[in-house]
Design a protein around this nucleic acid. Structure first.
Lengths: 340, 340
DNA sequence: ATGAAAGCGCTAACAG
DNA sequence: CTGTTAGCGCTTTCAT
């Protein structure tokens, strides 16, 4: 049944629909875009022809002719991470219901890959572009400058940005955790983190943490994983950390997965949390409510970022976004549970 | 500097490059596609013009003219799930290096959304299509039948499929866990699962588990979450389960996140694992090595699915795939740790 | 090796 | 409300 025409792009064209419905192609086109501007009788015949032939419009032809597209490019460091993937999911939902298609690119925390992806996405003539963070290569910047596509930089806040910004301050996250631990009387602290090279935002959180702790007269030992959060390495690092610095009273982690690794190691070593040691994460992942003890963490506005990014993009596309509303700090919230 | 032409699709065209390089547009086109078929001198001038103007080819125009595209559509139930997202990441890497762009769609475990997405992706005239599983609406099937796009159905195995298949048997996963538990002398079992409606594959694992246990004279109590794995609900369900059926000696979970919830609840209730109760998950997520005790689980070939899906697609696109190699069972592996 | 010409399938004025 | 007429920016024969 299938496989009739090899290399057969779109099988049935608008022209064929038009012929079958006995109207002109432009009427079909109009019907597809603004159905109620076509007389009911013809509309019906056109729809019948479409169904009969199984017609699917050719997006490329449409895009070329109208010189605009319903594509929105989104670049994230990795989709293998519930932070970004939940943002993506929300973004997709909102944008799709407005008729847009996401073109998702994985930069793998690599600026030059981002550059390549920006080019590749721009060549689709996208209606909008969403990037993660403020860090882009000089070349990316110049490509972007030559382009009037609306851009949202998300998941970060605090720098001017290229166009629109939707995020929050990671520095503040670190500060909030530090303040909370200090309040509980802890002074000797450590920060266990995924690799800073991979994740610049983890570094910002670290800086916020360290500055706050030190300003209060405390100390911070840093332990950086070699890559993404890896459970075994986290355990090993934690063990070594506690051996080298048995005085440590609190550990802040760059994210909840790392914190889970630390927590398990503490269970294993019978270091009571929060008696012997306090522990905090970042992300408020689902499991943090159920660990023993439940994990104190930071709730980042993952889905809100998606929602507002979509909103700003759509407003910008409709030229309805005043300059003053182009930057949005969504803020974060400390979730106090029992581990600190 | 920026914002010159509003609604200005592509700023610089191939024609302008051609003019600046003093060649014809078709030579530029040729240079872009097969650089070594133009004379070195002109090639150089063309490249200079491209750089000078910051030319980016218009993908839509190219696609329309050649009536083929470098798009490959991928439909997954959710990207918010490391199973699919790792497959996606791998798939993307392999396909991108072959010059393809992924168009990713989220079906949200909803057949009719899948149908809509299939149409939407097909309208891009994609070079290939990747779907998750075998379950599609009748309409999706008929749209697909009218189309000669290569299709891979992934993450499942055991049915004929539409074209190519890359996956593994979820039924086998359930069986492997059951056999392992039976071997350890357990008979009274339970299966705690994410919602079957959302995840048909979890149901297959359950069936594999149940059939094997019952064939050996054991029993299986089923507890189904109302949605995706939710830590609090998992804890609640586990507590109730153990209260209603204190005789239970082993719990198999539909995935590792659920297992983590159960494990934490057991810690909380001081039910020794595996002494009082054995526990197994599915997924071999990173944290499973570090929990106390480490979690026995099933390793699904997440990244292999991505790799082989890319391989089959590419081979099929090059018409180099014999019928016999269109179906691939990647198998799974039981990872025995200390929780069973 | 290069260029001229003819579209790809659709949209967007415009005229009726 | 409907049809005619031009393209959108590129690729692809086919000559040269």
């Amino acid at each position: 049944m299938a496989k009739r025409r090899r290399r057969g792009s779109q099988r049935v064209t608008m022209g064929e629909v038009a012929r079958l419905a006995d109207v002109s192609p432009s009427t079909v086109s109009l019907y597809l875009r603004r159905p109620d501007e076509v007389s009911p009788g013809r509309a019906e015949k056109i729809q019948a022809a479409i169904d009969r032939l199984g017609y699917l419009p050719n997006t490329m032809a449409g895009g070329l002719a109208s010189s605009r597209s319903n594509v929105i490019g989104v670049l994230v460091p990795t989709i293998t991470n519930s932070f970004f993937s939940e943002t993506l999911e929300t973004l997709e939902r909102h944008l799709r219901s407005a008729g847009y298609q996401l073109l998702i690119g994985n930069t793998e925390f690599d600026d030059s890959r981002e550059e390549e992806l920006i080019r590749s996405i721009l060549s689709w003539n996208p209606a909008g572009l969403v990037l993660t963070g403020f860090l882009h290569t000089r070349k990316s910047l110049s490509v972007l400058a030559n382009n009037d596509t609306p851009i949202v930089e998300m998941w970060d806040y605090g720098q001017p940005g290229l166009d629109m910004v939707v995020g929050f301050s990671h520095h503040t996250c670190g500060r909030l955790v530090a303040e909370h631990m200090l309040r509980q009387g802890r002074r000797r602290m450590a920060f266990v983190s995924t690799n800073f090279q991979r994740d610049v935002r983890a570094r910002d959180r670290y800086h916020g943490f360290r500055e706050t702790v030190e300003a209060a007269g405390g100390t911070v030992k840093l332990r950086e994983l070699s890559g993404r959060s890896h459970a075994e390495e986290t355990g090993r690092l934690t063990r070594a950390l506690m051996q080298d610095h048995p005085e440590i009273e609190a550990i802040a982690c760059s994210n909840d997965m790392v914190a889970l690794g630390v927590l398990c190691e503490c269970q294993r070593q019978k270091w009571d949390i929060p008696g012997r040691i306090a522990l905090a994460g970042f992300g408020n992942l689902d499991f943090t409510t159920s660990t023993v003890p439940p994990l104190t963490t930071i709730e980042p506005p993952r889905r809100e970022i998606g929602r507002h990014t979509a909103r700003l993009l759509l407003a910008s596309l409709a030229s309805e976004l005043p300059e003053a509303e182009k930057r949005l700090d969504l803020g974060v919230r400390l979730v106090e549970r029992e581990s600190v």
